[in-house]
Design a protein around this nucleic acid. Structure first.
Lengths: 168, 168
DNA sequence: ATCATCTAATATGGTTCTCGTATTAGACGA
DNA sequence: TCGTCTAATACGAGAACCATATTAGATGAT
């Protein structure tokens, strides 16, 4: 890649616009998450954990806590609430070899409710996407994926106290 | 606009990819926010309020509470913490006409610290942006802005209990 | 002017959440 | 067999959330 077309003032302004838009989007999605969570009696942190589980499959409480940047004891409370609400199930899989291990699995049925609450946003996104060509959508998807990747990196860098860019 | 180029299975798949990438980005940014907040002793909700203030100028506590979907009494606690940490200042502006009114203003100096914590993400974004043409960046910025807009709409729809799309 | 009513911001207190520490159960190497 | 490690959870002190009450001030009707 590296198809730098221009690098003057206009270019920098364009990059700034993208970053500002991203920041706006970030905060707006946070507020949306909170609103959705409030509708189904989920704390911020519960909602985030549920989303992580939805995307990254069944996880152990410890692994989930690490990913979400939470204290293990906090995770116990989170899972208690999620389980009480019917969002997830704690499973002790006998075939896992380690009898201490617990895996947390989302319950498909209850999670459909989230989908319903987000249906408005979903159809809005369909409408927005309809205005772009296939090539443009591909660019957008690529950008979003790479940005999410950068977010993961920045998050772990902060969590491990490593300054950004430090190798190994 | 409405430049629908294709509308078959491949197209739907592309749209799905975009939406999934957006969802990933959403959750990843949430986790990043939490991690950044943790570094400066800010709760989730404090961080969000601070960001709203950073973007949407000085606001009254009540207006901020409405925008963030929080109870006014909760906002008092949030502002107490933000003020104690030196992030914001409560001002009673005598020229505002209403002597009950308080306006909350972010303190530039302290907020530079957030900027520093996000510097890793910032330079990563510069690197990502460098890989796109001006036209592509314009498309991305447009997409992000429109998505943020849709997020705002979905948030207020949920907050007001109005089903999405219901007129006036 | 006076009073009822409205809103802004905050105080109060009961319930809930967070997280450092301790505990229990089990894995694993020496 | 023992010491050490990890997974998950229990416990409790401190903090946060928010329904409600309170104080101060605006606004409108009579």
């Amino acid at each position: 890649m590296r198809s730098v077309e221009s690098s003057g003032r206009a270019r920098r302004r364009l990059v700034t616009l993208v970053k500002e838009a991203l920041r706006d989007l970030n905060i707006q999605l946070s507020l949306l998450n909170r609103q959705v969570g409030a509708r189904v009696e989920l704390r911020d942190v519960d909602f985030d954990c549920l989303e992580v589980l939805n995307r990254h499959g069944p996880l152990s409480p410890t692994a989930l806590a690490r990913r979400a940047g939470l204290h293990p004891a906090t995770m116990t409370g989170v899972l208690d609430r999620l389980q009480r609400g019917g969002w997830v199930a704690r499973e002790r899989s006998p075939e896992s070899g380690d009898r201490r291990a617990v895996t947390v699995r989302v319950l498909r049925e209850r999670n459909a409710e989230l989908f319903r609450l987000l249906s408005g946003m979903n159809t809005a996104m369909d409408g927005i996407c309809a205005d772009y060509t296939d090539e443009q959508l591909a660019v957008v998807a690529d950008f979003l994926n790479r940005t999410a990747q950068a977010g993961t990196q920045a998050t772990t860098d902060l969590a491990t106290g490593r300054s950004p860019g430090t190798p190994g």
